[in-house]
Each structure stands twice: as structure tokens, then as C-alpha cells.
Design a protein around this nucleic acid. Structure first.
Length: 223
DNA sequence: GACCAGGCACATC
DNA sequence: GATGTGCATGGT
């Protein structure tokens, strides 16, 4: 698995997602939409101070009050409603407990999450992977940018197609997906940001027709 | 002051 | 199906 190992060798385990509980992962996944993580952390700390990191509290809270608490995360009125949408879904369908989802197969659960207004593909996959431990690969702006810049994928693949590149190539292992995505974010943050060639990038050798990286490692999955 | 940051829904063509 | 726009804060 050279591509993965190149990243792992360069950065080591990342220990993503930076949240304490599954609830915080869900909240963070919604708040970080088009937003720097630092601003999300501030919002989560305000929620914690307000005692609002609790499904029942969030369920009972007025959307306007919630919006004020998460102001630092930007687009706060929109995100407050999106959080409320998720919490309503959680109570209506699963009794206000994420554990209620345990018996639901991942593909169906993903469809259910996508049916919630404000939960798109990346947010749904982040919740599935990082809050629920499901093997659902997360594709984000960094993933796309890094892979396109190193010519490992066609630039006009859409979200689901990029996701499939990984999921078809890798064993359905949530710990692996977790680490892989975290590593892609790390290299995306540090490299590949400008149009200039990535000097010293751990992926520098993975250009042009290098063996399509994410697929290496597939061998273990098949059979 | 422009531009970006771990998107998404909605309108429009 | 593809593209454009609003949402809105905080860092560089």
C-alpha cells in the first residue's frame, strides 16, 4: 500500500476526529461545513459551557438561542437549523439515542442521513465514519485537490465516484478509512495548496502514471 | 480588503 | 446534469 504508507511514514497516525464524543463529532461535522476547524472549536466550547452538548438539551433548545451559541462557526442561523434537523430526526426515528442506529445497515443509514436537510454527502460520511464507526469513506476538498494534483484521479469525477475509488480499492475497515482520510487532510493542508509543484511533498513520487495509489492495498480486500 | 476555510440547499439553465 | 448564489464568521 505505497500511497498510504508514504503518507503514514511522513505524518504518522493522526488520531482524527478531534472530538471527545460521538455527539461532538456530529455537531462538529455540521458546524465545520465550509468553515475552519478553529472556529468550530470555539462554538463547541460555548455549547459545552452552556451544558448544551446533550441531545435532549439540543432538542429542547430554541433554534435562535442555539444560533447565538454557535455564532463563531459562521452561517450560524443556517447551521443551527441543520443541527435541529438532525436532532429531530434522531428523536423521531431513534428515540434520541445514536445507539438506536446500530441495527441499521450502513447504506440505508446513509440514505436516511442524506434525507435530512443540511446533511450532504460529506457530512453524512463524516458522521457514519467518525461518530458511528461505519466504513464509509469521507471525501472532502483536500482529498479531491490532492488526488487531482497528483493526477491520481480524473478531475471531473464527482463525490460518489471518488468515494468509490477508495471503497472499491480498500477493505471495508473503518479504522483504515479514518486514518486514510485524516492523512489526506494533513498532506492537503501542508502541501498541494498552490499551483507550484509540491516540493518535498511525501507524495511527490506519485505523479502521472504511478500505480494508482489508493488501489494498492486492494489485494487484501478482495477474495 | 480580498480570499479562504474539512458544504449545502435552492434556483436556474 | 451542470453551474451559480446565499449563508457569515474569523484567520491570513
Amino acid at each position: 500500500m505505497p500511497f498510504y504508507e508514504a503518507l503514514m511514514g511522513a505524518y504518522g497516525p493522526r488520531n482524527w476526529w478531534p472530538a471527545r464524543t460521538p455527539l461532538e463529532v456530529v455537531v462538529g461535522a455540521i458546524l465545520t461545513q465550509n468553515t475552519a476547524w478553529r472556529n468550530v472549536e470555539r462554538a463547541i466550547e460555548r455549547l459545552r459551557a452552556a451544558g448544551a452538548l446533550d441531545w435532549s438539551v439540543l432538542h429542547a433548545m430554541d433554534a435562535g438561542d442555539l444560533a447565538e451559541l454557535i455564532r463563531s462557526a459562521g452561517t450560524y442561523k443556517v447551521k443551527a437549523q441543520r443541527l435541529k434537523n438532525f436532532v429531530s430526526f434522531l428523536f423521531e426515528r431513534y428515540g434520541g439515542d445514536l445507539a438506536g442506529m446500530d441495527a441499521v445497515p450502513t447504506p440505508r443509514l446513509r440514505e436516511e442521513l442524506l434525507s435530512i436537510s443540511g446533511i450532504g454527502r460529506e457530512t453524512a460520511d463524516a458522521i457514519l465514519l467518525y461518530a458511528l464507526g461505519r466504513p464509509s469513506f469521507v471525501v472532502d476538498a483536500y482529498t479531491r485537490r490532492v488526488l487531482v494534483r497528483h493526477r491520481l484521479i480524473d478531475p471531473d469525477l464527482d463525490y460518489e465516484e471518488i468515494k468509490a475509488v477508495f471503497e472499491d480499492a480498500l477493505p471495508a475497515d473503518s479504522a483504515l478509512y479514518n486514518e486514510y482520510h485524516a492523512l489526506l487532510v494533513e498532506v492537503g493542508k501542508q502541501q498541494c495548496r498552490t499551483r507550484a509543484r509540491c516540493q518535498g511533498c511525501p507524495l511527490e513520487q506519485f505523479e502521472h502514471d504511478e500505480p494508482l495509489s489508493p488501489t494498492t492495498g486492494a489485494e487484501d480486500a478482495e477474495q
